[in-house]
Amino acid sequence: ANFAANVAQAELQPADGSPAQAGFAAADAAFTGLFAAELALNLFANWWRPFASDAWSVFDLVVVAVSLLALGLDGVPGLSFLRLIRTFRVLRLFGRLPAFRQIFRALTSAIQPVANAFTFLFVVCAIFAIVGCTLFGPADPDHFLTFSFAFFTMFQICTGDGWASQIARPLFQHFQPSGAVDPVAAVFFVLFVILVGWTLLSVVVAVLLENFIQASWAEREETERETKRARVGKSVAIGPLDPLLLKMVHYRSTEDLHKLTLLVFEAMDVLGTGYVEYGTMRDGLRALHLDPPIMLSAEDFQILTCNGLLCGSQGEMSFES
Protein backbone atom coordinates (compact mmCIF):
# COMPACT_ATOMS: atom_id res chain seq x y z
CA ALA A 1 0.00 0.00 0.00
CA ASN A 2 2.84 2.38 0.84
CA PHE A 3 4.61 1.61 -2.43
CA ALA A 4 1.37 2.09 -4.38
CA ALA A 5 0.91 5.48 -2.71
CA ASN A 6 4.45 6.49 -3.74
CA VAL A 7 3.75 5.42 -7.33
CA ALA A 8 0.50 7.37 -7.41
CA GLN A 9 2.17 10.48 -5.98
CA ALA A 10 4.98 10.30 -8.54
CA GLU A 11 2.46 9.89 -11.35
CA LEU A 12 0.00 12.61 -10.30
CA GLN A 13 2.61 15.16 -9.13
CA PRO A 14 0.11 17.06 -6.95
CA ALA A 15 0.74 20.76 -6.46
CA ASP A 16 1.93 22.04 -3.09
CA GLY A 17 -1.00 22.94 -0.88
CA SER A 18 -3.52 20.97 -2.91
CA PRO A 19 -5.92 18.49 -1.27
CA ALA A 20 -4.18 15.61 -3.07
CA GLN A 21 -0.82 16.68 -1.65
CA ALA A 22 -2.31 16.87 1.83
CA GLY A 23 -3.77 13.39 1.41
CA PHE A 24 -0.45 11.91 0.32
CA ALA A 25 1.31 13.64 3.22
CA ALA A 26 -1.20 12.20 5.69
CA ALA A 27 -0.82 8.73 4.20
CA ASP A 28 2.96 9.00 4.40
CA ALA A 29 2.78 10.04 8.05
CA ALA A 30 0.46 7.11 8.80
CA PHE A 31 2.73 4.59 7.08
CA THR A 32 5.77 6.03 8.84
CA GLY A 33 4.01 5.67 12.19
CA LEU A 34 3.08 2.05 11.46
CA PHE A 35 6.63 1.21 10.39
CA ALA A 36 8.04 2.90 13.49
CA ALA A 37 5.67 0.93 15.74
CA GLU A 38 6.64 -2.32 14.02
CA LEU A 39 10.32 -1.47 14.40
CA ALA A 40 9.85 -0.72 18.10
CA LEU A 41 8.14 -4.09 18.64
CA ASN A 42 10.90 -5.87 16.76
CA LEU A 43 13.57 -4.07 18.76
CA PHE A 44 11.81 -4.88 22.05
CA ALA A 45 11.36 -8.56 21.15
CA ASN A 46 14.95 -9.05 19.91
CA TRP A 47 16.99 -6.82 22.17
CA TRP A 48 19.88 -6.26 21.39
CA ARG A 49 22.24 -8.72 19.75
CA PRO A 50 19.62 -10.64 17.69
CA PHE A 51 18.34 -7.34 16.32
CA ALA A 52 21.79 -5.97 15.43
CA SER A 53 22.89 -9.25 13.84
CA ASP A 54 19.91 -9.29 11.44
CA ALA A 55 20.70 -7.27 8.31
CA TRP A 56 17.02 -6.74 7.48
CA SER A 57 16.33 -5.34 10.95
CA VAL A 58 19.21 -2.89 10.57
CA PHE A 59 17.87 -1.92 7.14
CA ASP A 60 14.45 -1.31 8.70
CA LEU A 61 16.09 0.88 11.35
CA VAL A 62 17.87 3.02 8.75
CA VAL A 63 14.79 3.43 6.54
CA VAL A 64 12.45 4.26 9.42
CA ALA A 65 14.98 6.68 10.95
CA VAL A 66 15.35 8.49 7.62
CA SER A 67 11.57 8.54 7.18
CA LEU A 68 11.08 10.08 10.63
CA LEU A 69 13.83 12.63 9.93
CA ALA A 70 12.25 13.60 6.61
CA LEU A 71 8.85 13.84 8.28
CA GLY A 72 10.15 16.04 11.10
CA LEU A 73 12.19 18.28 8.81
CA ASP A 74 9.58 18.54 6.09
CA GLY A 75 9.84 22.32 5.89
CA VAL A 76 13.63 22.52 5.76
CA PRO A 77 14.91 23.24 2.22
CA GLY A 78 17.57 21.03 0.70
CA LEU A 79 16.40 17.83 2.40
CA SER A 80 14.17 16.59 -0.38
CA PHE A 81 16.61 13.74 -1.05
CA LEU A 82 15.47 12.17 2.24
CA ARG A 83 12.07 11.62 0.67
CA LEU A 84 13.72 9.54 -2.04
CA ILE A 85 15.06 7.09 0.54
CA ARG A 86 11.53 6.45 1.80
CA THR A 87 10.70 4.73 -1.49
CA PHE A 88 13.18 1.98 -0.55
CA ARG A 89 10.81 0.80 2.17
CA VAL A 90 9.36 -1.61 -0.38
CA LEU A 91 12.65 -3.53 -0.20
CA ARG A 92 11.58 -4.68 3.26
CA LEU A 93 9.46 -7.25 1.43
CA PHE A 94 12.66 -9.03 0.40
CA GLY A 95 13.27 -10.01 4.00
CA ARG A 96 9.73 -11.22 4.63
CA LEU A 97 8.60 -13.07 1.51
CA PRO A 98 10.54 -16.33 0.94
CA ALA A 99 10.50 -15.99 -2.87
CA PHE A 100 11.90 -12.44 -2.76
CA ARG A 101 14.44 -13.41 -0.11
CA GLN A 102 15.67 -16.27 -2.28
CA ILE A 103 16.16 -13.96 -5.28
CA PHE A 104 17.92 -11.36 -3.15
CA ARG A 105 20.30 -13.92 -1.64
CA ALA A 106 21.03 -15.36 -5.08
CA LEU A 107 21.88 -11.91 -6.44
CA THR A 108 24.10 -11.03 -3.49
CA SER A 109 25.94 -14.35 -3.72
CA ALA A 110 26.57 -13.72 -7.42
CA ILE A 111 28.09 -10.26 -6.90
CA GLN A 112 31.73 -11.36 -6.94
CA PRO A 113 31.66 -13.71 -9.98
CA VAL A 114 29.46 -11.30 -11.95
CA ALA A 115 31.77 -8.43 -11.00
CA ASN A 116 34.72 -10.43 -12.35
CA ALA A 117 32.88 -11.01 -15.62
CA PHE A 118 31.96 -7.32 -15.87
CA THR A 119 35.57 -6.34 -15.20
CA PHE A 120 36.71 -8.46 -18.15
CA LEU A 121 33.92 -6.93 -20.24
CA PHE A 122 35.04 -3.43 -19.20
CA VAL A 123 38.63 -4.13 -20.23
CA VAL A 124 37.57 -5.42 -23.66
CA CYS A 125 35.33 -2.37 -24.24
CA ALA A 126 38.17 -0.08 -23.15
CA ILE A 127 40.55 -1.71 -25.65
CA PHE A 128 38.05 -1.25 -28.49
CA ALA A 129 37.41 2.34 -27.36
CA ILE A 130 41.14 3.17 -27.57
CA VAL A 131 41.39 1.56 -30.99
CA GLY A 132 38.24 3.41 -32.10
CA CYS A 133 39.70 6.76 -31.03
CA THR A 134 42.78 6.08 -33.13
CA LEU A 135 40.97 4.83 -36.22
CA PHE A 136 37.78 6.89 -36.31
CA GLY A 137 38.37 9.95 -34.09
CA PRO A 138 39.04 12.46 -36.89
CA ALA A 139 36.30 10.98 -39.10
CA ASP A 140 33.55 10.78 -36.44
CA PRO A 141 34.31 13.14 -33.52
CA ASP A 142 30.73 12.84 -32.21
CA HIS A 143 31.35 9.21 -31.30
CA PHE A 144 35.14 8.71 -31.14
CA LEU A 145 36.72 12.09 -30.34
CA THR A 146 37.91 11.09 -26.84
CA PHE A 147 38.12 7.89 -24.83
CA SER A 148 34.96 8.71 -22.88
CA PHE A 149 33.04 9.34 -26.12
CA ALA A 150 34.35 6.14 -27.65
CA PHE A 151 33.67 4.07 -24.52
CA PHE A 152 30.07 5.24 -24.40
CA THR A 153 29.79 4.42 -28.10
CA MET A 154 30.99 0.89 -27.36
CA PHE A 155 28.34 0.63 -24.66
CA GLN A 156 25.72 1.80 -27.16
CA ILE A 157 26.84 -0.90 -29.58
CA CYS A 158 26.52 -3.49 -26.78
CA THR A 159 22.85 -2.58 -26.44
CA GLY A 160 22.29 -2.83 -30.19
CA ASP A 161 20.89 0.71 -30.30
CA GLY A 162 21.28 1.89 -33.90
CA TRP A 163 24.96 1.07 -34.10
CA ALA A 164 24.81 0.04 -37.78
CA SER A 165 22.70 2.92 -39.13
CA GLN A 166 24.02 5.71 -36.88
CA ILE A 167 27.68 4.75 -36.38
CA ALA A 168 28.99 2.13 -38.78
CA ARG A 169 27.38 3.12 -42.08
CA PRO A 170 28.25 6.86 -41.81
CA LEU A 171 31.88 5.76 -41.37
CA PHE A 172 31.55 3.59 -44.49
CA GLN A 173 30.36 6.70 -46.38
CA HIS A 174 33.28 8.72 -45.01
CA PHE A 175 36.01 6.26 -45.92
CA GLN A 176 34.34 4.87 -49.07
CA PRO A 177 32.43 7.68 -50.85
CA SER A 178 31.55 5.22 -53.60
CA GLY A 179 29.25 3.40 -51.19
CA ALA A 180 31.43 0.33 -50.70
CA VAL A 181 31.89 -1.27 -47.29
CA ASP A 182 35.03 -0.08 -45.56
CA PRO A 183 36.93 -3.24 -44.52
CA VAL A 184 38.61 -1.72 -41.45
CA ALA A 185 35.38 -0.33 -39.99
CA ALA A 186 33.48 -3.49 -40.90
CA VAL A 187 35.99 -5.79 -39.18
CA PHE A 188 36.11 -3.49 -36.14
CA PHE A 189 32.36 -3.36 -35.55
CA VAL A 190 31.54 -6.95 -36.51
CA LEU A 191 34.34 -8.27 -34.29
CA PHE A 192 33.12 -6.16 -31.36
CA VAL A 193 29.50 -7.26 -31.77
CA ILE A 194 30.47 -10.94 -31.97
CA LEU A 195 32.95 -10.79 -29.11
CA VAL A 196 31.05 -8.56 -26.71
CA GLY A 197 27.41 -8.41 -27.78
CA TRP A 198 27.00 -12.10 -28.54
CA THR A 199 29.62 -13.79 -26.36
CA LEU A 200 30.73 -11.87 -23.27
CA LEU A 201 27.28 -10.60 -22.36
CA SER A 202 26.00 -14.16 -22.58
CA VAL A 203 28.83 -15.24 -20.28
CA VAL A 204 27.73 -12.66 -17.71
CA VAL A 205 24.16 -13.94 -17.86
CA ALA A 206 25.39 -17.55 -17.59
CA VAL A 207 27.49 -16.73 -14.50
CA LEU A 208 24.53 -14.98 -12.88
CA LEU A 209 22.21 -17.89 -13.70
CA GLU A 210 24.66 -20.48 -12.35
CA ASN A 211 25.07 -18.65 -9.06
CA PHE A 212 21.32 -18.12 -8.82
CA ILE A 213 20.72 -21.86 -9.20
CA GLN A 214 23.37 -22.69 -6.60
CA ALA A 215 21.92 -20.16 -4.16
CA SER A 216 18.42 -21.54 -4.77
CA TRP A 217 19.57 -25.07 -3.97
CA ALA A 218 21.41 -23.88 -0.88
CA GLU A 219 18.30 -22.01 0.28
CA ARG A 220 16.15 -25.09 -0.31
CA GLU A 221 18.55 -27.37 1.55
CA GLU A 222 18.70 -24.95 4.48
CA THR A 223 14.89 -24.85 4.60
CA GLU A 224 14.73 -28.64 4.58
CA ARG A 225 17.30 -28.87 7.39
CA GLU A 226 15.36 -26.37 9.48
CA THR A 227 12.15 -28.32 8.85
CA LYS A 228 13.79 -31.57 9.91
CA ARG A 229 15.21 -29.96 13.06
CA ALA A 230 11.78 -28.57 13.88
CA ARG A 231 10.16 -31.97 13.41
CA VAL A 232 12.73 -33.66 15.64
CA GLY A 233 12.33 -30.98 18.27
CA LYS A 234 8.55 -31.31 18.25
CA SER A 235 8.44 -35.10 18.19
CA VAL A 236 6.05 -36.51 20.74
CA ALA A 237 7.25 -39.39 22.88
CA ILE A 238 4.87 -42.30 22.32
CA GLY A 239 6.95 -45.27 23.45
CA PRO A 240 8.61 -45.40 26.89
CA LEU A 241 12.13 -45.09 25.41
CA ASP A 242 11.35 -42.48 22.75
CA PRO A 243 13.20 -39.62 24.52
CA LEU A 244 16.32 -41.80 24.58
CA LEU A 245 15.89 -42.92 20.97
CA LEU A 246 15.57 -39.30 19.80
CA LYS A 247 19.00 -38.66 21.29
CA MET A 248 20.49 -41.72 19.61
CA VAL A 249 18.93 -41.26 16.17
CA HIS A 250 21.87 -39.20 14.84
CA TYR A 251 24.39 -42.05 14.82
CA ARG A 252 26.89 -42.11 11.95
CA SER A 253 27.35 -45.89 11.50
CA THR A 254 26.27 -49.24 12.89
CA GLU A 255 29.40 -49.35 15.03
CA ASP A 256 28.57 -45.92 16.39
CA LEU A 257 25.05 -47.10 17.29
CA HIS A 258 26.50 -50.18 19.03
CA LYS A 259 28.79 -47.98 21.14
CA LEU A 260 25.92 -45.66 22.09
CA THR A 261 23.75 -48.60 23.11
CA LEU A 262 26.58 -50.07 25.19
CA LEU A 263 27.09 -46.75 26.98
CA VAL A 264 23.40 -46.59 27.86
CA PHE A 265 23.45 -50.21 29.14
CA GLU A 266 26.52 -49.53 31.27
CA ALA A 267 24.80 -46.43 32.72
CA MET A 268 21.89 -48.62 33.79
CA ASP A 269 24.12 -51.47 35.04
CA VAL A 270 25.45 -49.53 38.03
CA LEU A 271 26.65 -52.73 39.78
CA GLY A 272 28.61 -53.91 36.74
CA THR A 273 27.04 -57.39 36.76
CA GLY A 274 26.36 -57.43 33.02
CA TYR A 275 22.61 -57.68 33.66
CA VAL A 276 19.79 -55.24 34.39
CA GLU A 277 16.43 -55.92 35.91
CA TYR A 278 13.37 -53.72 36.15
CA GLY A 279 14.53 -51.72 39.16
CA THR A 280 18.05 -51.00 37.94
CA MET A 281 16.80 -50.17 34.44
CA ARG A 282 14.17 -47.80 35.82
CA ASP A 283 16.67 -45.99 38.06
CA GLY A 284 19.35 -45.90 35.36
CA LEU A 285 17.01 -44.37 32.77
CA ARG A 286 15.81 -41.81 35.29
CA ALA A 287 19.42 -40.87 36.07
CA LEU A 288 20.06 -39.94 32.41
CA HIS A 289 18.09 -36.70 32.96
CA LEU A 290 16.40 -36.75 29.56
CA ASP A 291 13.76 -34.25 28.48
CA PRO A 292 11.08 -35.45 28.95
CA PRO A 293 12.34 -37.85 31.67
CA ILE A 294 11.70 -41.57 31.23
CA MET A 295 9.38 -42.92 33.93
CA LEU A 296 9.62 -46.65 33.21
CA SER A 297 6.76 -48.68 34.66
CA ALA A 298 6.59 -52.42 35.24
CA GLU A 299 4.17 -52.72 32.32
CA ASP A 300 6.64 -50.90 30.07
CA PHE A 301 9.39 -53.28 31.14
CA GLN A 302 7.20 -56.26 30.30
CA ILE A 303 6.53 -54.83 26.84
CA LEU A 304 10.22 -54.14 26.21
CA THR A 305 11.19 -57.66 27.24
CA CYS A 306 8.35 -59.33 25.28
CA ASN A 307 6.59 -60.34 28.50
CA GLY A 308 9.83 -61.61 30.01
CA LEU A 309 10.97 -63.73 27.05
CA LEU A 310 14.20 -61.70 26.80
CA CYS A 311 14.91 -62.05 30.53
CA GLY A 312 16.57 -64.78 32.52
CA SER A 313 15.05 -66.85 35.32
CA GLN A 314 15.51 -63.99 37.80
CA GLY A 315 13.94 -61.36 35.52
CA GLU A 316 17.33 -59.96 34.45
CA MET A 317 18.26 -58.86 30.92
CA SER A 318 21.74 -58.89 29.36
CA PHE A 319 23.21 -56.45 26.84
CA GLU A 320 22.83 -59.01 24.04
CA SER A 321 19.12 -59.25 24.78
Score class of each variant (00 low, 15 high):
A1L: 09
A1K: 11
N2V: 01
F3N: 07
Q9E: 15
E11T: 06
G17C: 09
G23K: 02
A30I: 08
F31V: 06
F35R: 10
F35M: 13
A36W: 00
A40F: 10
L41Q: 07
L43M: 12
A52L: 14
A55S: 10
W56K: 02
D60Q: 06
L61N: 00
V64E: 00
V64Y: 02
A65M: 09
V66G: 07
V66P: 05
S67L: 05
L68H: 02
L69R: 06
A70W: 02
L73I: 00
D74W: 11
D74L: 08
P77H: 08
S80Y: 03
R83M: 00
R86E: 04
V90S: 05
L93D: 10
G95Q: 05
G95H: 01
P98R: 09
F100K: 03
Q102D: 05
Q102H: 07
I103H: 07
A106H: 08
L107M: 13
A110I: 01
I111Q: 06
P113L: 03
V114M: 09
N116G: 09
A117K: 11
A117C: 12
A117E: 10
T119Q: 11
L121A: 12
A129N: 03
A129I: 01
G132N: 03
C133I: 08
F136N: 08
P138T: 04
D140T: 12
H143Y: 12
F144Y: 14
S148W: 07
F152S: 12
T159L: 14
T159R: 12
D161S: 14
G162F: 10
W163K: 01
S165G: 03
S165Q: 11
I167W: 01
A168I: 03
R169N: 03
R169L: 07
P170G: 13
P177M: 09
S178E: 13
D182F: 05
V184M: 12
V184F: 11
A186Q: 10
F188M: 13
G197D: 04
A206N: 10
L208K: 06
F212G: 11
Q214N: 08
E219Y: 15
E219H: 15
E222T: 13
E222M: 14
R225Y: 10
R231K: 15
K234G: 02
I238Y: 07
L241F: 07
L241S: 06
L241P: 01
L245M: 13
L245F: 13
L246C: 11
L246P: 02
V249W: 09
H250N: 14
T254A: 11
D256H: 11
K259N: 10
L260I: 13
L262I: 06
F265P: 04
F265Q: 11
D269N: 12
G272L: 10
G272F: 06
Y278K: 05
M281V: 05
G284A: 07
A287Y: 01
L288E: 06
L290P: 01
I294H: 05
I294W: 02
A298W: 02
E299M: 10
D300W: 08
Q302I: 00
Q302T: 01
Q302E: 05
G308C: 09
L309E: 15
C311I: 02
S318Q: 14
